[in-house]
Nucleic acid binder design. Structure first.
Lengths: 199, 199
DNA sequence: TCATATATTTTACAAGTGGTCAACAACCGG
DNA sequence: CCGGTTGTTGACCACTTGTAAAATATATGA
């Protein structure tokens, strides 16, 4: 016997939320139409009614994940810093904190990225997002080089941006591998001493 | 009609190699008994004869991956450097180069790590391996702090080791996301300038 | 040579998959 | 009140999966 109806938009939201719940709890590999339906307390037929094919559901889940995960937003507090170096510092700190506070989102994003190795469309979407991320850092790095031209001999803004992104990636992995010992401030202090000394 | 026989050890090696081929090409999620059997040109019954359950095959593949991927070996060339700082530098360079030259192994290792989120035994094995990795860096970092006590104010060897490991993780991800623009030397130069300046 | 152990293939099966479809219930404009 | 649109369900299908068992081939040694 059919249950109560719900409007198109609402139902889709519920289903996507359920899909996120299942995928982050049991992995993308265990993301099945029926598991999502059970999580949303619907029949699997209903899920397929709103997302015609499973592929569609997976893609919309990725889209949901990208928009839900608030990435690299330069807040007013950060923009107020007069020195570009301080803005970069604050931004790195913010992103590290975000990743370590949204471990499920980050982990799922990494799983999507692994999936992208075999699915062209997913790879393209993730590449675009990472590029967007890199571009945001690039702007700051260009300001940085303009403000202090002598501080970074022989280093391009592109190179700096790439390092910043990979730096965030490393922190993301580390924060999930060993969340108890992940401390943002100690992290920055350690790397400051370490790499600043490399000959 | 049954094919030619092979001795226990040889067959197991062939099957593990085939399993790696399948898993790195199509992902752990697509690693099925039958796919491995097809890759090894055997019947799926034969695969199950040598590895009783699929779980067993997956675990042995992880073990194979860990031993095959030559991780963090301090070669004689590196050990010859008199300064600990130079040894660290050479080691970082070596590990970055290794990761970017064994992308399939690294990618598969990351997939196993994601799988570890839901499988206790896999998580334990990977944690142990990462701990071993960290411990190897820790030794070098302790030497470093002993050799140059004033260079790293308020930073512990543990903190430095954690950063080194996460640094390698970041490079691993970056090398796979954007392999064309991944240059080890430029990378070190950029981070040297960037983080050395952070206030 | 021939019985026995070992390796391999084949077949069988239950559970679960994505997807289709017909029946049915709720809503809404008339 | 009616009729059509929109959700919802459950039965069903073809297929894949892991696993077990039977059937068959190969090696080995007495």
């Amino acid at each position: 016997m059919p249950g109560k109806r719900a409007s198109e938009g609402v139902r889709r939201g519920q289903i996507l939320q359920a899909a996120f719940e299942v995928a982050s709890r049991e992995g993308i590999g265990s993301l099945t139409i029926r598991a999502v339906a059970a999580e949303a307390e619907l029949s699997h037929g209903s899920v397929l009614f709103h997302f015609e094919r499973k592929e569609r559901l997976v893609h919309e889940l990725l889209e949901w994940l990208i928009t839900t995960t608030s990435v690299l937003h330069v807040s007013e507090d950060i923009a107020r810093f007069p020195r570009a170096l301080d803005r970069l510092h604050a931004l790195l700190q913010q992103e590290m904190a975000r990743l370590s506070h949204q471990p499920r989102h980050t982990r799922l994003f990494l799983e999507f990225w692994a999936l992208g190795a075999r699915h062209e469309s997913i790879r393209a979407r993730i590449s675009a997002e990472l590029e967007r991320y890199r571009a945001a850092f690039l702007t700051i790095m260009e300001e940085l080089l303009r403000a202090e031209p002598t501080a970074f001999p022989g280093v391009t803004a592109d190179g700096l941006a790439a390092v910043a992104v990979s730096w965030i990636h490393g922190c993301a992995v580390q924060a999930m591998v060993d969340p108890e010992h992940f401390d943002v401030d100690e992290y920055l202090a350690a790397v400051r001493g370490m790499v600043g000394q490399l000959a």
